[in-house]
Simulated scan of single mutants.
Amino acid sequence: MTVDAVTGSGGIKRQEAVMKRLVTVVTGGSRGIGAAVCRRLAADGHDVAVGYVRDADAAEAVADGVRDAGGRAVAVRVDTSVEADVERLFAVAEDQLGPVTGLVNNAGVTGPLGRLADTGTADLRRVVEVNLLGALLCARRAAQLMTPCGSGVIVNISSAAATLGSPGDYVHYAATKAALDALTVGLSKELGPDGIRVNAVAPGMIDTEMHAAMGDPDRARRAAASIPLRRPGQAEEIAAAVSWLMSPEASYATGTVVRVAGGR
């Protein structure tokens, strides 16, 4: 056996090891549920592309957490409603980490709390563009990359609002999440024959900084009395559900929306 043959054999094995690594793109990964998902997936052995739109320092801190857990990470600024940004997100992920095997469609916005009649058109447009169009663009790109490989997992972050409607708070947000549930069901049937699973997690009231961004930082704690479990959820509890859906333990689960909402 020549030296070249030995080196080649070792190179092939190393390539196979790299190719078998789990590489997951997480949008909206710099805070809240997205950050918790990145950390949990890193603990599960994923390399993670942390998508973020504004806070580069927060995104890099999450990426550092992934590295501390033994994974590889890259933070990528992306507005998921912009097609070119989505293309770049996946291109950087593949260039820096390897073939993408998973997507967590987490990026989302609510706009200010209030009745639909009082909501500005710009806010409506932004919610639809990020929550629905952004998810569609990311799912489409993931499908394009995963289909030739014959495997992959997509998890959409929906909301209990999709079925509750959220009157007086953000029915426009609820409407986009209901559309995301429809996307989950339809895309799972479309991609199932290609070996790609598509599911969703529907969080209830989760205690994250999102409520402060909506102008009501105490909203989650005030809602506790209306939740059967009498408390808001934690981002890590949503990350645990995502982790299961992305794992081999959920290998026969597709087209399902897992509700993690404390009984609401």
Rank of each mutant, 00 (worst) to 15 (best):
G70S: 06
T147P: 02
G71V: 01
G186R: 10
N156Y: 12
R72P: 07
T27V: 09
A174L: 00
L133Q: 05
S159F: 12
M214G: 09
R31M: 11
A73Y: 01
V66Q: 07
A139W: 08
G111T: 13
G233P: 00
R197W: 14
T254Q: 10
N105C: 06
M214F: 08
G215Y: 02
H211T: 12
A139C: 13
R264F: 12
I154A: 04
E237V: 03
E249C: 05
V257C: 08
E129Q: 10
A182H: 13
T110Q: 12
A220P: 13
L145C: 04
I227P: 06
T2P: 11
G233S: 03
I238H: 12
A253V: 12
G262V: 00
V127F: 13
V86C: 04
H172L: 00
P193C: 07
L229G: 04
Q144I: 08
A17S: 14
V18G: 10
T121P: 03
N131A: 06
A142H: 09
T27G: 05
D44V: 03
W244K: 06
V66M: 07
G11V: 02
S9M: 14
T147F: 00
A239R: 02
V260N: 01
E236L: 07
V82I: 12
P203C: 14
L145R: 13
A161M: 05
A17K: 11
T27H: 00
P248N: 11
Q15W: 11
A59E: 10
G65N: 07
A225M: 05
V260A: 04
A93Q: 01
A107T: 11
I206S: 00
R21L: 13
